[in-house]
Amino acid sequence: MSEDPYSVLGVSKTASQDEIKKAYRRIAKECHPDLKPGDAAAEARFKAAASAYDLLKDPETRARFDRGEIDASGQERAQQQYYRQYSEAAGNPYRRAQAGGAGQEAGFEDMSDIFAEFMRRQGGGGQGFGGGQGTQREYEFHAPGQDRRYAMEISFLDAVFGAVKPITMPSGDKLEVRIPAGIADGQTVRLRGKGDPGFGGGAPGDALVTIGVAPHAVFRREGDDIHVRLPVSLDEAVLGGKVPAPTIDGRVSVTIPAGTSSGKTLRLKGKGVQRRGKGTRGDQLIEIAIVMPDTVDEELRAFMEGWRKKNGYDPRKDMPA
């Protein structure tokens, strides 16, 4: 931000701290990005006002700015995480289809009624209209139970292949969590009806289990692909050949082409993670890393010196000087 913070807030340079605060709050109210989704102008105004207010809210910083010791851009506010980004995501645990019928069928519970209804009618195997149950008890008091939230950590391979894991509820009861193959770090599994009991005949809430996936010593995951860094010896890199490599299914033999450089990537099709809801799998990507022998002996040194005289090359010729 390089604009004058006073003019951003619409106050004079002699404004009191209270006037500054009021001016900021007025803009924040009008332009908050979470309350004005999709309004880019409001968002820009909000950000500018927030930066300006950060600079002027502390009388000492304000005085330093007035004396010219710091400029407006020195106070750039750390990138604020707006709630909107989370709120729009499909897995928002706080956005639950409201009471009863709509949205209760597998997979669509986080959607609005309209959208869930549409999805059900497309793919739900002739469920027809409405969930039904929601309207039967209209005149009795009933309310669904509250959802409960849990956090659980699982291993990398359990996330890849799926697993059934127990969690202990506060009541001491154990509950089995069925983790689908290919689940990603931070995703949530919903256990229907395993939350708090409902009131007056209302349905119980759900248990929402957020899954944390522990990192693996060898495998790294990007989406549905598995990445592995594979060390190869100098002679394997020069001469090529078959070398063993780990995959999530176990060891396989991969062919290293003669003259392979470090950083070259080999792709094993279909050796990655199961794609959610599809029969296909991602790939495994193997990045080659040439590793020197523990000691460079006299023989290797003598050979290299001789070789360099005749065949020296410049691997950096394409780099800027």
Partner: peptide, 13 residues
């Protein structure tokens, strides 16, 4: 915030 959840969710859909 509950209204914001609904608004943003519907917008995303």
């Amino acid at each position: 915030i509950s209204l914001i959840d609904q608004l943003h969710g519907v917008r995303a859909e």
